[in-house]
Design a protein around this nucleic acid. Structure first.
Lengths: 112, 112
DNA sequence: ATTAGATACATAATTTTCTTATGTATAATT
DNA sequence: AATTATACATAAGAAAATTATGTATCTAAT
């Protein structure tokens, strides 16, 4: 099952930030592959959504970049800035809270 | 804490469908108030988002309506159609699955 | 050797969906 | 009498994703 696109809306930034928190630095393609693997293909980030989002986060000063070349092929690594680390904590905490609220609202029992 | 709007994106339809499943029939204003109460004000549906969404679901045949008057004031009650009930089950099940995936991805332990 | 698939970036046009603002009207409360 | 709450609706604009397209390199298979 691949989740309907509307479900994933609004979680993209949180996913990016969390992954960068755990992995120090990642490049765009790597993020798409990692999310795909971790979710067994259930979440497949599209490039058209990911790259503009990364660019926006960089422009906001949340992410910083370093470009490297593997042979002649470019890789643009992203990592969290200092304010980016703070924002990450906020976002994760907000999302955790949101999930509890939604769980209650939808009366979904935790699958412990 | 009121959740950032981007977080709520994509969950509106699921919330509407779940509430209608539990309450048989509800009118728009009632939905906004119920969500507000159930979430202690954390989720506040705006009319500009709710009504177009209800109209779309009705046009798709997911919801059916009956109009009543309380004095001279109109109420438009929405309830699930037969295909609407099937869709509701799907949506809730998809969302439950999605939450588990996000929990894993964000490494959030269930607050049992 | 050539083709196909994977890696790796980027962006533009369109669509979808929400926000914000506005509008109308009735009922209840202060 | 004025304000707040109830109750609907929609339009303009903004935000964000989808879809499609483009460029280019590297690897594996035929």
């Amino acid at each position: 099952m691949i989740y309907s696109s509307e479900l994933i809306k609004g979680t993209l930034k949180t996913i990016i930030l969390k992954l960068l928190k755990e992995n120090k630095r990642m490049y765009g393609y790597e993020i798409t592959q990692t999310v795909k693997e971790l979710t067994q293909g259930k979440i497949q980030l599209t490039e058209g959504a990911l790259y503009p989002s990364l660019h926006a986060l960089e422009a906001e000063g949340i992410l910083v970049t370093e470009t490297e070349y593997i042979g002649k092929r470019m890789r643009k690594y992203y990592s969290l800035s200092v304010p980016g680390k703070a924002l990450t904590k906020e976002k994760i905490s907000e999302f955790t809270d949101f999930m509890e609220t939604m769980r209650f609202l939808l009366d979904i029992k935790p699958a412990v």
